[in-house]
Design a protein around this nucleic acid. Structure first.
Lengths: 229, 229
DNA sequence: ACATATTAACTGGTATGGTAGTATGGTATT
DNA sequence: AATACCATACTACCATACCAGTTAATATGT
């Protein structure tokens, strides 16, 4: 086990800190799906007691990122393609509506934020900073939700999105058509600016669908990461 | 504090059991919003140690049903009308799509389940068993999701729905036009049976909106239960 | 009588020890 | 050689003890 650790943020409990660390290490696949992780192991690594680790485990298991078998062990959940499909379904439903609202009216200052974000997306791709790109991508979509006053809805999506995020991390590793994504973001941005309702609806569907096309390929390439059904 | 307690289900941990008990007592407003609840108090009441109680509290706070202030106390969250609106928004988005799918094709055996459920709804109303009605109502909607293979999506909704559920419990207490709800369920059922896409879309919007019309009235009637914004 | 200091009784957060169930590897038995 | 058995070393789960803040009632000084 080799955790990526960062400093504890002020005003947070040890339990919160452990939670953040583990979650990050799961999503970036540093803790691979199916692998084992024990309270004691983590508590030794982070030099804390087992209690806050347990607290973190409880939260993570509620997000289905890990699962515990009593008196046996705790394991990183395999990527569940059904959960990914659910996340996609939910996102498409919600984001279609949100884009529809955004193409009707959208605060000007946030358009600037989107444009700035978009520029940095292109930079990130050019410099092959893929993790940064993923973060920018998330910000991009969140900003759209915020613009139509549905920021909290996005935070719900993020909770459901965890399995999906790991798939995206895999596509990152496996190298994918990033420019296509940037191109679609450009169209989304354009549809909001020009209040082009049609374009918005069209692009958002293909956008979200695109992100899951490579799933089957990934499953054959990294079978050990995926849940068997 | 006066908890409604039920027997522990087999195969569950003490922590799970405590979680279920508290959650139920919050949703049925037996533990009123804003009131205080301490780990020690609950652990004494249920004759368990603080650890499983703490486990339950962690889960509940992740669902925003309670919040803890370190070294001060833990409190039942006030009903957050913003969260309710979010839940409504999400439900309307998702359920519209799901009904749309259901009006295209729906397994016959589940139609029978819906019809049976519908009959029992009418009975429940007649006998004024409102809590039973709420449960039947949930089953009704869940069955529709299951019918189009989106059962797991419904379970996500349930997680978001918690604040909303308390509002519904309030409307139950405050006595409301239940027959209207039954009537709408009848229309939903009909739209699925007759594959009437138009009717389905129309009724689901009004159905979900209806459930929140009384909110403002409730807020003036039970101001202490609601979050001030 | 009033303002201020003190303390005692709480709280949630953390550490640790004990318990029961599970996997494993070695040993004795067949 | 194969199998049954048992010791051991894990695990998550639960109980308990301690810690560090918060609060409110009490004591104290003016």
């Amino acid at each position: 086990m080799n955790l990526v650790i960062e400093k504890q943020k002020l005003g947070t409990s040890v339990g919160d800190h452990v939670y953040e660390i583990i979650k990050k290490n799961i999503i970036n696949l540093n803790m691979p799906p199916g692998s084992r992780v024990s309270e004691k192991e983590v508590s030794d690594l982070l030099n804390v007691s087992r209690t806050p680790v347990r607290e973190a485990f409880i939260k993570l298991s509620k997000e289905q990122l890990i699962y515990a078998v009593p008196q046996k062990g705790t394991y990183i959940s395999h990527i569940d393609l059904e959960a990914v499909e659910d996340a996609r379904f939910i996102r498409e439903c919600l984001e279609k509506t949100v884009i529809s609202m955004a193409t009707e009216s959208f605060p000007e200052d946030l358009i600037y934020v989107l444009e700035d974000n978009f520029k940095r997306q292109k930079q990130a791709i050019k410099q092959k900073k893929f993790y940064d790109f993923l973060m920018l991508d998330e910000d991009f979509h969140r900003t759209i939700f915020v613009g139509v006053n549905k920021g909290s809805v996005w935070s719900y999506i993020e909770q459901i999105n965890t399995h999906y995020k790991r798939v995206r991390m895999l596509t990152l590793i496996a190298d994918v058509n990033w420019l296509g994504l940037v191109d679609q973001h450009m169209h989304i941005l354009k549809s909001i600016k020009n209040q082009d309702h049609e374009l918005g609806q069209e692009v958002i569907s293909t956008h979200i669908k695109k992100l899951i096309t490579e799933q089957e390929e990934l499953k054959t390439r990294y079978p050990q990461y995926f849940k068997i059904d």
